[in-house]
């Protein structure tokens, strides 16, 4: 006799690193932009440099983004790119969000 396993609720699969508004925003922007500059992220997400750096640190430690520091002329610039793991994590997060919405709508109906 085999026990029928109920599919897990989408919430259980949410990744805390990604399921956070700012970090999800960073991943989204980096995905669309392919390569995004620190200042652009700060402007779009309306964060202080320190706050943004903290979130970037979390994502970099998790292996979801690459941070590249360089110069353009005399100006220092920091560029952020999504890693393959970051692309997967973002896609999974969005899929789970859609699943959650579908689940909520089904429950409401």
């Amino acid at each position: 006799m085999t026990a029928e396993t109920e599919p897990s609720h989408p919430v259980t699969g949410l990744d805390d690193v990604v399921h956070q508004r700012v970090r999800l925003g960073i991943l989204t922007i980096a995905h669309e932009a392919r390569r995004v500059e620190f200042g652009y992220l700060r402007g779009q997400l309306q964060l202080t440099a320190g706050n943004l750096s903290q979130h970037l640190g979390v994502l970099e430690t998790a292996g979801l983004i690459d941070v590249e520091k360089g110069y353009e002329g005399k100006r220092g610039r920091t560029w952020i790119t999504l890693t393959a793991a970051g692309r997967t994590a973002l896609a999974e997060e969005i899929a789970r969000l859609k699943l959650l919405i579908a689940r909520v709508e089904t429950t409401d109906g």
Binding site: V11, H19, R21, Q46, L47, N51, H55, K98, I101
Partner: peptide, 11 residues
Amino acid sequence: MTTDAVPGDPR
């Protein structure tokens, strides 16, 4: 944009 996690607001 704030830094709060909003697990209950997927929409």
